[in-house]
Simulated scan of single mutants.
Amino acid sequence: MERKLYRSNTNVMISGVLGGIAEMVHLDATILRLIFVLLLIFTYGVPLFLLYVAATIIIPKRGGEY
């Protein structure tokens, strides 16, 4: 079975990127969001934030909607 990365339509807080990653790897999206926020706070978070913005632009929404 082929796994593809999509932004989530149901697990959405801001744009669905972390929800889509959580669905792909079968994890709870809340855990990924918490890790993401902690990394933003306790590390130099600008590159991580820019990566999130780029992922929002690049990763398509499930169902082909943009």
Rank of each mutant, 00 (worst) to 15 (best):
V17S: 06
M13V: 15
K61D: 14
L51W: 14
I14V: 13
E2P: 07
M24N: 04
R7W: 01
R3T: 15
I21Y: 01
A29F: 12
E2C: 01
I41V: 15
I58Q: 01
G64F: 03
T30F: 11
V25Y: 12
I35N: 03
T43C: 07
F49A: 13
L48R: 10
M1P: 08
I35S: 06
M13A: 13
T10R: 15
L39V: 08
V25E: 14
F49I: 09
A55E: 02
G20W: 06
L40E: 02
R62Q: 15
G64R: 03
L39R: 10
V17G: 00
F42W: 01
N11T: 09
L48M: 12
G20E: 10
V12Y: 00
G19F: 00
P60Y: 01
A55K: 02
I35K: 07
L34G: 11
L39T: 08
V46M: 13
Y6I: 07
L5W: 00
G19R: 02
K4Q: 15
R7C: 11
I57L: 09
M1V: 10
P60I: 00
L39S: 10
L48G: 04
L48W: 02
L18E: 07
Y52S: 05
I58G: 05
V46G: 02
T43N: 08
E2H: 09
